[in-house]
Amino acid sequence: MRAAVLGSPVAHSLSPLLHTTAYAALGLTDWTYTRREVTADELAGVVAGLDESWRGLSLTMPLKEAAFDVAATVSDVARDAGAVNTLVRRTDGGWDGHNTDVAGLAGALDAALDAALAVDGHDDRATLLGSGATSRSAALALVDLGVREVRVAARNTEAAAAVVALFESHGVAAGHVPLEHWVREPGRLVVSTLPPSASTAVGALLEHDRTDLGGVTLLDVVYAEWPTPLARAAQAHGADVVSGLEMLVRQAALQVELFTGRAAPLEAMAEAARREVGA
């Protein structure tokens, strides 16, 4: 049985480590997992050329939207998020499209916060940084956690409006503010979907505004070259900081379950990931 992660660039992906660790722990000696550089224009042709030994595909950027064109069915979560990050082989040879990022984000936040929405005095407000592809998955994760009011702090007004509309469609009060305003009344929870290139400038805003983040939890979806400048700055100002590695492991565990039909060994996968990045 074969599976792989596709994307461009993909050399940095930890998915091969996570999946092969899971297969070994489950005793699935006939399973392999590799990586392959694939662009959005190439995806349909690559998927069409895979034989029946292929059981699942993990998709990273820039394939999460292109995957809608190759999936025979798409889960409600993937459609709502506007992103397919997982393709699972069907019995008829086609592919089902899923999104495991939402569950991965929700699981990481829930674990980090110890069910924070039940904590006395929590005001169920949050701030979401960014309006790119991952922000929609983050929005759905926040909905799952029961957040009722969200500020979307982003530079792209049009993209932010789409994320705000997604929140509102789920009954969450939301509004857009300039990215530079994220440090003002961030709420108990901040989720950053910003790329590493934006981390330094956004973190520096904490110094400028002398913001106290005591009692705030920040999840930064970045896991490479951890901690990011944003994570370091937030921690220095009192925030509890969670690495994107926690999200990555949980979304990969769900992929393992979708591919193999077996419960994923979450702790073994998490330990392998932490060793790899030195966390």
Rank of each mutant, 00 (worst) to 15 (best):
R2C: 15
A4K: 13
V5N: 15
G7K: 14
S8V: 11
P9Q: 08
V10Y: 13
A11R: 14
A11P: 10
S13R: 14
L17R: 12
T21I: 14
T21H: 14
T21R: 15
Y23V: 15
Y23I: 13
L26I: 15
G27K: 14
E37N: 12
V38P: 11
V38Q: 13
T39S: 10
E42T: 11
A44T: 11
V46Q: 12
A48F: 14
G49Y: 06
E52D: 15
E52G: 13
E52W: 12
S53H: 06
W54E: 13
R55V: 09
R55P: 04
G56M: 11
L57Q: 12
L57T: 07
L57G: 08
A71W: 03
V74I: 09
D76G: 00
D76Y: 03
A78W: 00
R79I: 03
N85S: 08
V88G: 10
R89Q: 12
R90T: 14
R90E: 14
T91C: 14
T91S: 15
T100A: 04
T100S: 10
D101T: 05
A103R: 08
G104D: 06
L105D: 02
L105T: 07
A106N: 02
A106D: 05
A106M: 04
L109I: 05
L109Q: 03
L109H: 02
L113C: 07
A115V: 12
A118I: 07
V119W: 01
D120W: 10
G121Q: 05
T127I: 01
G132F: 01
A139T: 00
L142D: 01
G146W: 02
G146M: 01
V147I: 01
R148L: 11
A154N: 04
N156P: 00
E158Q: 05
E158F: 00
A160Q: 02
A161T: 07
A161R: 04
V164H: 08
S169I: 03
H170T: 05
H170S: 06
G171Q: 10
G171L: 09
A173V: 12
P178L: 03
H181N: 01
E185F: 05
E185Y: 07
R188I: 02
L189G: 03
L189D: 01
L189M: 04
V190S: 02
V190N: 04
V191K: 06
P196M: 12
S197L: 13
T200M: 09
A201I: 04
A201Y: 06
D209S: 08
R210P: 02
R210H: 06
T211S: 01
T211V: 03
G214V: 03
G215D: 02
T217C: 08
L219A: 11
L219E: 02
A231T: 10
A233P: 05
A234H: 08
A236N: 13
A236E: 11
H237R: 14
A239H: 13
D240A: 10
D240H: 09
M247S: 11
V249H: 06
R250H: 07
Q251H: 09
V256L: 06
T260N: 15
T260W: 15
A263T: 09
A264F: 08
M269Q: 04
A272L: 10
A273N: 00
A273C: 02
E276H: 08
E276Q: 00
G278A: 03
G278W: 00
